[in-house]
Simulated scan of single mutants.
Amino acid sequence: MGLTRSARGSYETKSCPRCGAELYADMSVCYGCLYDFTRDAGHASGALPSPAGTASSPDDPGGDTEDLSVAASLAQRRGAEVGVVVRTASVDLWIPVSGCGTSVGRDPSNDVVLHSLAVSRRHLHMVPTSDGMEVEDLGSKNPATYRGRDVSGRVIVPYGDEIDLCGCRLVMTGPEAS
């Protein structure tokens, strides 16, 4: 946490351990990635273990945040396997995507179910192609974004790239482009 001075005075800030955004010290949720500062890491069911040998910093009293390299290493370990790393505030999970595709939404009939009212019942569908993952919006009210732009209709997301779906990041994994 640092003290930042402005023309109107001073205010304390902190950095989000998940996305690195600078936030006011009294904020309990990062609006960039929806990281929840109030959650108790000891009771988080989907928490990933910290990498061995990770040292605590003055801003990290120990164990309540995760190293961002965990998701990156998860994607790298999957290498050429076609799938998607689903990153939320409480879990990083790799899911395979078959040739017929994977559906994402709030409804339990989807292959990937996200429990957020911001996510539509049937939000999007992903199908692997030779160039990347073809992502199709299914008429959602809050479209996913790719490189800052709404995904409307269909877009090819290259393997290794990611989309943001209502604060949940979906990182595409698959073979490298030839």
Rank of each mutant, 00 (worst) to 15 (best):
G2K: 13
L3F: 03
T4C: 09
S6M: 10
S6F: 12
A7C: 03
A7F: 10
S10H: 14
T13Y: 09
K14Y: 05
C16Y: 09
Y24V: 07
A25L: 12
A25V: 13
A25Q: 14
D26M: 10
D26T: 12
V29T: 14
C30T: 11
G32P: 01
G32Y: 12
C33G: 08
L34G: 07
L34V: 08
D36R: 15
T38V: 04
D40W: 08
A41M: 08
G42H: 09
A44T: 13
G46M: 04
L48E: 10
P49T: 08
P49N: 07
P51Y: 08
P51M: 07
G53L: 12
G53F: 13
S57L: 13
S57Y: 01
S57E: 09
D59R: 08
D60T: 07
P61H: 03
G62C: 05
D64R: 11
D64M: 08
D64T: 09
E66G: 11
D67V: 04
S69E: 10
S69L: 09
S73A: 13
L74H: 03
L74N: 05
A75F: 01
Q76Y: 06
R77L: 14
R77P: 01
R78K: 15
G79R: 14
G79Y: 03
G83S: 09
V84K: 02
V85H: 08
R87A: 12
T88G: 15
S90I: 08
V91P: 00
L93G: 01
W94G: 05
V97L: 05
V97T: 08
G99P: 02
C100N: 13
C100I: 10
G101F: 03
G101H: 03
T102C: 15
T102W: 00
V104P: 07
G105K: 04
R106C: 02
P108W: 00
S109K: 10
S109F: 00
D111M: 03
V113C: 10
L114T: 10
L114Q: 05
H115R: 14
S116P: 02
L117P: 06
A118K: 14
V119N: 04
V119Q: 04
S120T: 01
R121G: 08
R121I: 00
R121P: 01
R122A: 13
H123F: 01
M126I: 15
V127D: 02
V127Y: 02
P128W: 06
T129K: 07
T129P: 06
T129V: 05
T129S: 14
T129H: 06
S130Q: 11
G132W: 10
M133I: 12
M133Y: 02
E134M: 12
E136A: 13
E136L: 02
D137G: 05
D137M: 05
D137T: 05
D137W: 02
S140G: 01
S140H: 04
N142G: 00
P143H: 04
A144F: 00
Y146F: 15
R147A: 13
R147V: 06
D150Q: 13
D150F: 06
V151A: 01
V151E: 01
G153C: 05
Y159K: 05
Y159L: 05
D161S: 12
D161C: 10
D161A: 13
E162H: 12
D164I: 08
D164C: 11
L165I: 06
C166Y: 03
C166H: 03
G167M: 12
G167D: 11
L170C: 06
L170W: 04
L170Q: 04
M172W: 04
T173E: 02
T173G: 05
G174Y: 07
